[in-house]
Design a protein around this nucleic acid. Structure first.
Length: 492
RNA sequence: GGCGACGUAGCCAAGUGGUAAGGCAGAGGUCUGCAAAACCUUUAUCCAGCGGUUCAAAUCCGCUCGUCGCCUCCA
């Protein structure tokens, strides 16, 4: 049984989709006016895992994530550069897709764009106005929050408190300071579409309601986004949708926590953000993913170089386990075994694998607790190491090999869900950090020649020369690994 | 001012009523010509502080202190 923390109720609830086997889910994507930062990556990765896990648990999921491609910030950005607003939107849409692909975030089933849903948006505004929840004033159409009695139910705010907070701008055209724009009239040169209220463009919140209606229906299962979208964005989406349909909009609301820097929110306005590309230039995509998934999605996570380095080291530990496991099993495919007849290490490993499966699924079922799930992964990693390290498995160890391959299967199932640990150990350890300067690197042949020379030196007990060669390569960032079957090398 | 979240080892981080997962770093060991890498072992008498409820609390309740977020564009 999967339990989800629902922002709407403020507690974890048993997950019961509206229809038995199909889940419809929407996550707010980005407004495409700039490169995306690691905070955007967190939301995308988190909901990617949610979708992946739901699918693994047998649900058919239709997942939509939008692009808001018409907005004040895009217009502003276009004015600052010599690009059209369409070119700005298109450029950053493509950049976002590149970033997500690099991070191993699966493509949603639908990636709707606001500009491709203008007729739907206009229809929705008409419905809202027709139902008495919206009004036109000076070419703009506003939503009347006082008329919608559920206003504030998501964010737990009351209209009177918000107004008392007095941080709302006073706009003479609004009937109430908290009313928000559904449709705004366009000034000359701004993007504009014909509408019953004259040429204009959508307000900020309306596109998500219109697009989710079109692709998922008027009531759907899960809607996700960052914590800061709770108010006003999602509150307004609910108001618009339910004012139009009179039906509940979304069953489960999920909000991911922020990425902080020095314990402060990372944001465009504070200027303390790191773009995904900047981080990808220094760290492997899987290190970033592991970092993002190693904290529960609702808690804040602090970004730092140390955290990324920790994640990278943890990945190395996993891949070392895979390497040893692969060597121990060789080509052996594994087969069924009788758990009741196991003894010694085989029995212990079998139990550890079973424990892993239950802990992993228990954690994921509990509001997608990836941090707990990863803890379970590493417990099994240790157990596997105990078996494979310094141990040559002979043909007589067939049962142990069967158990080992069952452990391998369990780990790879979990890895698939998280989309982590997907490389081969060779690829991981010979990684070249993206963007690293490859000049001055000796060729593979040169390295091999030096290793061979060192081997001769060592055979002749010429330790001085052997150490010299090791130092030469070390200075080039190449690390030598002396093992039983000879010397291997990798980039540090 | 209103609403809310959080405070667990040197660092990161699970656990939310039954006696502290996991990762990084550190220490010891195995291996090695010596190293490195890897692996194993180990590292919180205790979960911000003070009270309370309970047979039993890091986990529930109250208060205090501290940090952060939302209330305005923001993932």
């Amino acid at each position: 049984m999967i339990r989800i923390y629902n922002t709407l109720s403020g507690q974890k609830e048993e997950f019961r989709p509206i229809s038995d086997d199909a889940v419809r889910m929407y996550a707010c994507g980005v407004t495409v006016y700039d490169h995306s930062h690691i905070g955007h990556a967190r939301g995308a990765v988190v909901f990617d895992v949610v979708v992946s896990y739901l699918r693994h648990r047998g649900y058919k999921v239709k997942y939509a994530r939008n692009f808001t491609d018409v907005d004040d910030k895009i217009i502003k950005r276009a004015a600052e550069t010599d690009m059209t607003w369409q070119a700005v939107a298109e450029k950053y849409t493509q950049e976002y897709i590149k970033d997500m692909d690099a991070l191993g975030v699966g493509r949603p089933d639908v990636e709707p764009k606001a500009t491709e849903h203008i007729p739907e948006i206009i229809d929705l505004v008409k419905r809202i106005v027709g139902n008495g929840y919206g009004y036109e004033s000076g070419g703009d159409v506003f939503f009347s929050v006082r008329k919608f009695k559920g206003y504030g139910k998501l964010s737990g705010k009351s209209l009177d408190d918000m107004v008392a907070g007095s941080r709302v701008d006073v706009d003479g055209r609004k009937e109430d300071p908290m009313d928000f724009v559904l449709w705004k009239s366009s000034k000359p040169g701004e993007p504009a579409w014909d509408s019953p209220w004259g040429p204009g463009r959508p307000g900020w919140h309306i596109e998500c309601s219109a697009m989710s209606f079109k692709h998922l229906g008027e009531t759907f299962d899960i809607h996700g986004g960052g914590m800061d979208l709770q108010f006003p964005h999602h509150e307004n989406e609910i108001a618009q949708a339910e004012a139009a349909t009179g039906k509940p909009f979304v069953k489960y609301w999920m909000h991911n926590g922020f990425v902080n820097v020095n314990r402060e929110k990372m944001s465009k306005s504070l200027g303390n953000f790191f773009t995904i590309k900047e981080i990808l230039a220094k760290y492997e995509p899987e290190a970033i993913r592991l970092f993002l998934l190693s904290t529960h999605y609702r808690n804040p996570i602090d970004f730092s170089d140390q955290s990324l380095k920790d994640a990278r080291a943890a990945l190395g530990r996993y891949y070392s386990m895979v390497e040893a496991l692969t060597e121990a099993l060789g080509d052996y495919k594994g087969g069924a075994y009788d758990a009741d007849k196991l003894t010694g290490v085989a029995r212990k490993l079998h139990k550890a694998t079973a424990a892993f499966r239950s802990k992993f699924y228990e954690a994921m079922d509990d509001d997608f607790n990836t941090a707990g799930a990863l803890g379970a992964v590493y417990e099994l990693v240790r157990e596997v190491n105990r078996v494979t390290v310094d141990k040559v498995l002979s043909d007589g160890d067939q049962v142990l090999k069967d158990v080992l391959s069952a452990s391998r299967d369990a780990l790879s199932e979990a890895s698939g869900i998280l989309n982590l640990f997907q490389k081969t150990p060779a690829d991981w350890f010979n990684r070249q950090a993206a963007g690293a300067d490859a000049s001055g690197m000796p060729s593979d042949d040169e390295i091999k020649a030096l290793i061979e020379e060192r081997k001769q030196a060592r055979a002749g007990k010429n330790w001085k020369r052997a150490d010299e060669i090791r130092d030469i390569l070390d200075a080039k960032g190449i690390e030598l690994l002396d093992g039983a079957e000879g010397t291997k090398w990798r980039l540090k």
